[in-house]
Simulated scan of single mutants.
Amino acid sequence: MEHLVDHMRTSYHSLHEPTCALCNKHCRSFDSLREHLIGPLPKQECEKLFKILGCKFCLSVLESPLALRLHQHRCRFSGGTMSRPANKSTTVVDNGFSSHVVALACQMVDGGGNNGSMDVCARVCMVDEYENIIFHVYVKPPIPVPNYRYENSGIGGEHLRDGMPLKQVQRRIEEFLCNGEAMWKIRSPKAGKARILVGHHLQPLLQSLHLEYPSFMIRDTAAYPPLMKTNKLSNSLKYLTQTYLGYDIQAGVQDPYEDCVATMRLYLRMRNQVHQREDYPQASDPRNWNNFAPSRQSELERMSPEAMLAISRSDYYCWCLDSM
């Protein structure tokens, strides 16, 4: 039991982790759970049942093959029905939307630097949680652009000539995010009017826009532990969309609207997971600091694995908490 206690002390297993519905194995990520179920070396008993009753997108297990077919029809998204913004220098703004969550994506062009390493934001798109466009604009670059990366971006000089100045874009995005609340007053995603920001690799994107936003208001699909690789590196948005939503993106010219919709769908899928409610669900909460204290070693060794799991807390913020 001593080894189990040490493992629980450092692993931060919790009720929020991806868990095998067949054997209750806790995994750090959905990729790890996928390997457990259908990977190169799966657990054979789980693999056998999962092939019959398991959804390959959300990795849930249904009660019958018929229920599985009905579930997968709803679980798999289609990328072909999205209404994309017109490919012209225009602004689409809806100031009356009520969504508490927005997704942001940008299209970059080459701003120079060593071997074209400096990215400059040339196109911005924001959508609400219902996939409605709330902001779409081409951005007038503050510096000359030596390479528009047209093959991937679909952007040329004619798109940016009448683009919105970067400072004005910054101000508009801040208005959408803060929603009338002063930046310094933002304290929690559940209190106040400020909106949760969803995206993929958001920090470089925000840096290119010269924007700052509180980290506790950001939901980044590239940095969310359940969506990361088993080696704790980020998955690409293309992989996440194909694997967990069931359709392809970024084929040819990349579309920031398409990226916005994909990240929003991933966020909502994670947020809508049903987990048992806990008091003080994060390990960083001071009220959980003594759960596995060395002074409790003897007491912990007498506990069952289930009892230890009940007091163990996650070392990351589970997005399901946004819906509580």
Rank of each mutant, 00 (worst) to 15 (best):
G39Y: 08
D285I: 05
H200Y: 04
C178T: 01
G116T: 08
I155K: 09
T19Q: 00
L227T: 08
K25R: 12
R269L: 06
S284G: 11
N235E: 12
R28W: 12
E212Q: 05
A251V: 14
E47C: 15
E45G: 04
R313C: 08
H3R: 14
N272I: 05
E181K: 00
Q282Y: 10
D248H: 14
E45Q: 11
P40F: 08
R187I: 10
L33Q: 01
D255H: 11
C46E: 01
H26R: 12
A21V: 01
Y317S: 05
G39D: 07
A105R: 00
H201L: 04
Q207K: 15
L37F: 01
H200S: 12
Y267M: 03
A191D: 08
R219Y: 04
L227G: 05
K140M: 14
K185R: 13
N115W: 11
K229Y: 08
F77M: 14
R219F: 02
C20Q: 00
R269I: 06
T243E: 11
N179Q: 03
E2W: 10
C55T: 09
L321E: 11
Y247W: 07
N115H: 13
Y247H: 11
E47R: 13
R313S: 10
S298E: 14
I173H: 00
E2V: 09
L309H: 05
P225D: 10
E17K: 15
G113E: 06
H210L: 03
L202F: 01
S78R: 07
N24F: 06
R187D: 12
E35P: 03
N87T: 12
R187L: 12
K193T: 13
A191I: 13
N288L: 07
A262V: 02
C106I: 14
A262S: 15
M228N: 08
N147H: 13
P281W: 11
T81P: 01
D285H: 15
N291I: 07
R287M: 12
V92G: 02
D119R: 14
